[in-house]
Nucleic acid binder design. Structure first.
Length: 269
DNA sequence: AGCTCATGGCGAG
DNA sequence: TCGCCCTGAGCTG
């Protein structure tokens, strides 16, 4: 489930459960063992998220930098912690509970300077209140790349993944193959503020819901849908199913090694 | 048991 | 653009 909302939720959950107190740090799987030993017993001072990157802050401006990638998973639990399985890259433990990290693309100890370099190469994040959408607009408005690809480019905008990409373009009636140059400023402003609202709701519910109340199955008099990813969506993984709004068949195509989903009836050039 | 696929991202060519 | 890395669920057989 790792799009930006998941990471911001993880930052809050780590802070709430482990922040401000000493934590036991270990790496049962071994790949983070040396760094875990250095941090073991120190205080988790703060946590932070930028896009899909999670940072756990320890004394001396040392940070655990975590990126879940496609497969990474985090599991919280109450004490007593069960024996870890051999895929647990990072385990934090305190008297009340534990958290296990499995399968991340990145789990590394970084300095404050290295952390700043990561922030510097990321675009603005709709979930970071101080971030400036103009920074993204400056790149988008000059680009011949499709808006679908630009939304997934973390250097342009941080935190949007394949689900939010497909859904926000649907909600604004924008054909995914339009280029950045062809996007109007007011369309970008609407996309940014919609992403901020959708992703904030994603943090709260810990899942992605994008269907407006008037289009829910109940409101439309249709049988309830079962989405295997847990949320209610318009187009994501609904290939060949009828659009909830216009009834056209949802299409899919490969774009930069990812699946793109859209409704040809609702999303125009 | 083995295959495919997944809400990511990197580096080689 | 492709191959590769990380893991696990849901198939197939």
């Amino acid at each position: 489930m790792p799009e930006g909302h998941t990471i911001h939720r993880l930052a809050a959950d780590h802070r709430e459960r482990f922040g401000g107190r000493p934590v036991r740090v270990s790496s049962p799987q071994g790949k983070f063992a040396d760094s875990a030993a250095l941090l073991d017993g120190s205080v988790l001072e703060t946590t932070e998220a930028h896009g899909k990157h999670l940072f756990l802050g320890f004394p001396g401006e040392e940070w655990i930098h975590i990126h879940l990638g496609l497969f990474g998973k985090v599991a919280f639990g109450d004490a007593p912690a069960p024996p870890p399985t051999d895929t647990v890259r990072l385990r934090l433990v305190n008297p009340e509970g534990y958290v296990d990290l499995r399968g991340p693309t990145t789990c590394a100890l970084v300095t404050d300077a290295e952390k700043r370099a990561i922030h510097d190469r990321l675009g603005p994040d709709p979930l970071r209140a101080a971030d400036d959408p103009d920074k993204a607009w400056r790149r988008i408005s000059k680009s011949r790349t499709t808006i679908a690809a630009l939304l997934m480019d973390q250097k342009v905008i941080a935190g949007v993944g394949n689900v939010y990409r497909a859904e926000v373009l649907f909600r604004h009636g924008i054909d995914p193959y339009r280029t950045g140059k062809d996007l109007a400023r007011r369309e970008w402003d609407a996309i940014w503020s919609d992403l901020a609202a959708l992703m904030r709701e994603g943090v709260r519910l810990n899942r992605i819901d994008t269907v407006r109340p008037e289009h829910t199955p109940e409101a439309m008099g249709r049988p309830p849908r079962v989405d295997d990813h847990g949320g209610e969506v318009y187009v994501y993984r609904r290939t060949h199913q009828p659009c909830l709004v216009c009834g056209d068949e949802i299409r899919t195509a490969g774009l930069a090694a990812r699946n793109l989903f859209w409704c040809p009836g609702c999303q125009t050039r």
